[in-house]
């Protein structure tokens, strides 16, 4: 057998002879494990298990210092897990001289090198570099002739008027490079939508094609209109007489003004629909416009109205609250 040729020794190998040569004096093993001096083997084991979980180098590949901490903790545990040695140490007969161990190479020392590839998850097929999903983004469209690499994409945010987004528009844009380009804002564009301007990114090195410019649209709110999907919502103030008696009022929509009939007996909160005056859709149709009525009393109060209500109210009580 060639046992002696094995450089790596498992640390709890009981055949390991304590070496006479003591290279370093270990700190108190009880201190290292964070247990009381009178801790029994059960407590020691529990403390060790917790620390080993925290510091095992193979479980913390990015933490170089974990190796030293783990070695210290496992030496302390090794030392105290031998009842004979523990008893001698407890009686003060020996000190905590550590015996230097064969250089241990942890799994992490191999796992990140080419050797570790053997143990790569076969179901995840990590073989090709580009297979890692987070990186594939980086190589999208870039696996062409390396001498003519495509330039990098640029991204910018631009503010767009509410009505331009609803109705669509063509606007001129000054790029960070100083170049003026025309861009078409599609009808029905929504906040956060990204537009790609082909070939307006960085030029490609070595004569490759230019990257694209990615524009994220940030749509400015409108003072009157709010968008709800393909519909537009607005509030419409009406007079007391328009509410009570009905009438025709002009309403602004994103597609021009329209005359709207207020039905007799309308109230604050009444919702009326104006068909086909909402946001423009890709097929050329439009969503609807909804107005929510808001009854506004004369301001300052009208004396005649006050007298009228004084005469009317006592004989016409009505409940508006629960």
């Amino acid at each position: 057998m060639f046992v002696d040729n094995i450089t790596l020794r498992y640390r709890s190998d009981p055949r390991r002879e304590p070496t006479a040569r003591s290279d370093f004096l270990m700190r108190d093993p009880y201190d290292i494990l964070g247990v009381a001096k009178d801790a029994d083997i059960k407590e020691i084991k529990k403390a060790y298990r917790k620390l080993a979980r925290q510091h095992h180098p193979d479980l913390h590949p990015g933490d170089r210092a974990s190796e030293d901490r783990f070695k210290e903790v496992s030496s302390a545990y090794d030392f105290l897990s031998d009842p004979d040695r523990k008893a001698k140490y407890d009686r003060g007969e020996i000190d905590a001289a550590g015996s230097p161990k064969a250089q241990r190479r942890f799994y992490r020392d191999f796992a990140e090198a080419a050797g570790g590839e053997r143990y790569a998850d076969p179901s995840a097929s990590f073989h090709a570099f580009e297979d890692i999903d987070i990186l594939s983004e980086m190589f999208r469209g870039a696996r062409r002739d390396r001498r003519h690499q495509r330039g990098a994409d640029l991204s910018e945010r631009i503010e767009v008027d509410f009505l331009d987004a609803v109705n669509g528009a063509e606007r001129e844009l000054v790029l960070p490079t100083g170049k003026h380009v025309k861009m078409r804002i599609p009808a029905g564009a929504v906040d956060g939508q990204v537009m790609r301007l082909k070939g307006q990114g960085l030029p490609g090195p070595g004569g490759g094609s230019s990257g694209d410019l990615l524009l994220e649209l940030s749509i400015r709110p409108h003072p009157k209109f709010t968008r709800a999907g393909n519909d537009i919502v607005s509030e419409l103030p009406i007079t007391l007489s328009e509410a009570v008696l009905g009438g025709r009022v002009e309403v602004a929509t994103v597609d021009g003004s329209v005359n709207l009939t207020i039905p007799k007996g309308s109230n604050t909160g009444t919702r009326l629909r104006v068909r086909g005056k909402g946001a423009l859709l890709a097929d050329g149709h439009r969503g609807d416009h909804y107005v929510t009525l808001k009854v506004v009393l004369p301001n300052p109060p009208d004396d005649d109205l006050v007298r009228l209500v004084e005469g009317w109210a006592p004989s016409h009580p009505y409940r508006v609250r629960d």
Binding site: T7, L8, H56, Y107, F110, G115
Partner: peptide, 19 residues
């Protein structure tokens, strides 16, 4: 090989020490 050995040591510790 040594990769296998290091992995054996790891598995041994995971099972025995870390339960």
């Amino acid at each position: 090989d040594e990769v296998d050995e290091a992995r054996i040591a790891l598995i041994h510790e995971l099972r025995e020490d870390l339960k």
